[in-house]
């Protein structure tokens, strides 16, 4: 009963909107539409981030006992427990603690690490830069590579190249990151071409960094390229069956031109989405890769913090990663809407 009712309501809502849309349907001010849409998406993003922060902070409330006892174990005395509760502010009610934490985070103050007693913002600061550098480096390698391979595979579909790249891509998707990383170490670092560990000091120049971070970046590239390539190929092949592509072919256009001029612009939206998804994956995929190559980034810091059960640090880094994830998805949303006129002028 309920589904039928809601379907009716959906219909009537559409019907009510349509004439209104026609009356206001001015096609000219495209820029205004873009800004309004970006504003809406930003608001949604902020809301999502707020909910995520509640989840990340509230997760500690899931413990049956309290955090202090969980962290110190059964043998802890009452005094040490009380001291830790005082330090963590556990004596305040949860909403108040959340408010204090959130206002701190918004001012760049993530609190103090329990393991090292240092301010977390200090620990995170330089490492965030390193991680972003690695992710951008990998993105700069993988995005052009996978788009090129995807277009070529779609162009020569069912050829040996297509089959081989498809099977290779499926294989690469299935490999654990550390497997890829160690194979690269075995082949490229063993022979001394590239270093297998990354050391970053204040004296390191960008050139050195590009050279020494090549293996971690290449690992990440291999891991994400396969997925992006497969989706690019699928998005283009989907379009190749449409009548307007047939038309372009019958006009006598070369296959390359058909794909580049006619198929790719319409396949942009799914491609942008999958690229963003994989860039978001890069942000978290760095965790394992950073550990393999001893790269001083956020992922390594997070693993250390998880091992020490340094909850404040883990929360801070989780929030940073989640924010990056939300931002990338937001960007993909906006970009793929802009590339599609039908979505842009929907009234």
């Amino acid at each position: 009963m309920a589904p039928a009712g809601s379907a009716c309501r959906g219909l009537s809502a559409n019907a009510a909107q349509r004439p209104q849309g026609k009356n206001n349907g001015k096609r000219g001010d495209g820029m205004n539409d873009i800004w309004r849409m970006i504003g809406q998406r930003l608001l949604l993003g902020v809301l999502t981030l707020f909910i995520i922060s509640v989840v990340i902070f509230g997760a500690t409330e899931l413990l049956p006992g309290d955090l202090a006892r969980e962290l110190l174990g059964q043998s802890a005395t009452e005094e040490t427990l009380a001291a830790l509760r005082e330090q963590l502010g556990l004596n305040d009610p949860a909403p108040l603690r959340y408010w204090n934490w959130l206002t701190g985070v918004l001012q760049g103050d993530f609190g103090v690490s329990m393991a090292t007693q240092k301010p977390i913002s200090e620990l995170v600061g330089t490492r965030l830069g390193n991680t972003l550098f690695l992710a951008l480096y990998a993105a700069a390698l993988s995005v052009p590579l996978s788009l090129l391979l995807g277009v070529l595979a779609a162009l020569w579909r069912n050829s040996i190249f297509d089959r081989a790249s498809n099977a290779l891509a499926l294989t690469a998707i299935s490999f654990p990151e550390f497997f890829v990383a160690y194979i690269l170490v075995l082949w490229l670092a063993q022979t001394g071409i590239f270093p297998s560990m990354v050391r970053i000091t204040s004296a390191t120049t960008t050139g050195d960094l590009l050279y020494s971070a090549f293996l971690p970046a290449l690992t990440l590239t291999l891991v994400v390229t396969a997925h992006m390539m497969r989706m690019t190929r699928a998005a283009i092949i989907n379009l190749l069956a449409s009548p307007y592509i047939e038309m372009a072919r019958l006009k006598g256009m070369s296959p390359m031109r058909v794909v580049l001029r006619h198929a790719v612009p319409n396949a942009l939206a799914p491609i942008i989405n999958v690229v963003a998804l994989n860039l978001a994956y890069l942000i978290t995929g760095v965790v394992v890769v950073e550990v393999v190559f001893v790269y001083p980034g956020l992922g390594q810091l997070m693993i250390d913090a998880v091992t020490n059960r340094d909850i404040a640090v883990v929360q801070a880094i989780a929030l940073i990663f989640a924010a990056a994830y939300v931002l990338l998805n937001l960007l993909a949303d906006v970009l793929s809407t802009i590339t599609n006129p039908r979505l842009m002028h929907r009234k």
Binding site: I56, A59, L62, V287, V306, R309, A318, F321
Partner: peptide, 21 residues
């Protein structure tokens, strides 16, 4: 939806910190 907005690996790491490994 809210839970899925947090990357899976990161969320697992957060939960493992809280509940122990």
């Amino acid at each position: 939806d809210a839970l899925m907005a947090i990357p899976a690996l990161i969320f697992s790491l957060l939960l493992l910190t809280i509940f122990g490994t």
